[in-house]
Design a protein around this nucleic acid. Structure first.
Lengths: 157, 157
DNA sequence: TTTCTTATTGATAATGATTATCATTTTCTT
DNA sequence: AAGAAAATGATAATCATTATCAATAAGAAA
C-alpha cells in the first residue's frame, strides 16, 4: 500500500545522501526503508530489530549514527515522549501524507495521533510559520504539536 | 518582580499538595519556589544546584521524585529538547503569564521562546482543545508547540 | 504535647539509553 | 585495480534516571 509514494520518497532521500557527499550504504538504505514503511514513531531498539531481520550484521551503533545524520539534515524528526528513549519518524511534506499531531496521556503515556486537521489549523500554521520565519530570521523545517492530558481509560479509573 | 503572582501560585500548589494527601515538606516547598522564580526550563541538575544553596542536605533523588510528582499532577511540564536530559517548567494558566511556544534550532540546539501570540493562535487552540477533548474523550491539560529549523546564526555560517 | 503510623528522604547501587573509541571494512574516486 | 577517506561494528565508557532500603520527619490521634 502506498508503494509509489514511498518509493519516490526513498529516491529523494537517497539522492540527497549522495549530493551531500555522504555514501549511500546498505545499512543506510535499510534504515531509511524501514522508516518509510511505518506510520509509527519507532524507537532505536525497534528499528534495530527490524533491520536485523534482513541484515543481521548491522550493529545498533550504526542505527544510532544513521538516525543522527538524518535528524541533522532535517529529514527525520526525533521525538521524545518522556519514555526515556527517543522515537524517530521521516519528515515528509509538512502538510502532506503522514504529518500528524499528538494527544499524550500524562498518566499511561499513550499517544494518540490525529491527522484530521481542521482547515483553520492548516491555514494558521502556514501563517504562523511565515510570521515567525520573518520575525526571528529562522528557517522553519517542520513543527510538532502535542496536547497533554488524561485519556479516556485513565479518567474512568 | 511579579512577587504577588508568584506567591499566589505557590499558595495554590501548596494547597493542592495537602488536599491530595501528600505531605508538604521543606524540600518540596524549595523546589516549587525555584520553579516559580524562573522563566526558563531548568534541568534537574540546575534545580538541584539551586536547591542545594539553601538546603545542602537535600539530595538529587528527591528533586527527581518531586518533579515526577508535579508532572503527574499536571502542575509541571516536562520538556525534552533532545539534549539527553529533561527540563521542567510550572504550568500556569494555559494562556496566562509564562505560557510560550518554541523555535528550536536543529543545528545548534538553541531555543527561542515566543510569547507574542496572535489572536488567531489563541482562538484556534481553544477551538482545537474543545474539539479534540470531545472527539477523543481526552481531558487536555496543556499543549506544547515547537517549530524546528535553522536559526539566523547557523544559516549565515 | 507526646505517640504512632506512614510518607518521605538521602545515600548508594543498578539500570538503560546513548556516545566514544579504534581497528577493520567498504565506498567511491582515480 | 589501488588508494584515500568514510563508514562500520564490537566494546567500553558515560550520564541521566530509577530502584532499594534503612533512617527520618510529617501529620493524625490520643
Amino acid at each position: 500500500m502506498k508503494t509509489k509514494t514511498l518509493k519516490s520518497n526513498n529516491h529523494d532521500i537517497f539522492f540527497k545522501f549522495k549530493t551531500n557527499g555522504h555514501r549511500l550504504t546498505a545499512p543506510r538504505k535499510a534504515i531509511i526503508t524501514i522508516l518509510s514503511n511505518t506510520n509509527n514513531h519507532p524507537s532505536v531498539e525497534e528499528i534495530y530489530m527490524e533491520v536485523h531481520k534482513q541484515y543481521p550484521s548491522i550493529g545498533i551503533t550504526t542505527v544510532y549514527r544513521t538516525l543522527d545524520l538524518l535528524v541533522n539534515w532535517g529529514l527525520v524528526h526525533k521525538f521524545d515522549f518522556g519514555e526515556g528513549k527517543s522515537r524517530y519518524e521521516l519528515i515528509e511534506h509538512p502538510n502532506g501524507l503522514g504529518h500528524h499531531h499528538h494527544l499524550i496521556c500524562v498518566n499511561c503515556k499513550k499517544i494518540i495521533n490525529y491527522t484530521d486537521f481542521i482547515n483553520d489549523e492548516i491555514e494558521l500554521f502556514q501563517k504562523l510559520e511565515t510570521r515567525l520565519s520573518n520575525k526571528y530570521n529562522f528557517k522553519i523545517k517542520h513543527h510538532i504539536v502535542e496536547f497533554y492530558g488524561i485519556c479516556e481509560e485513565c479518567i474512568n479509573k
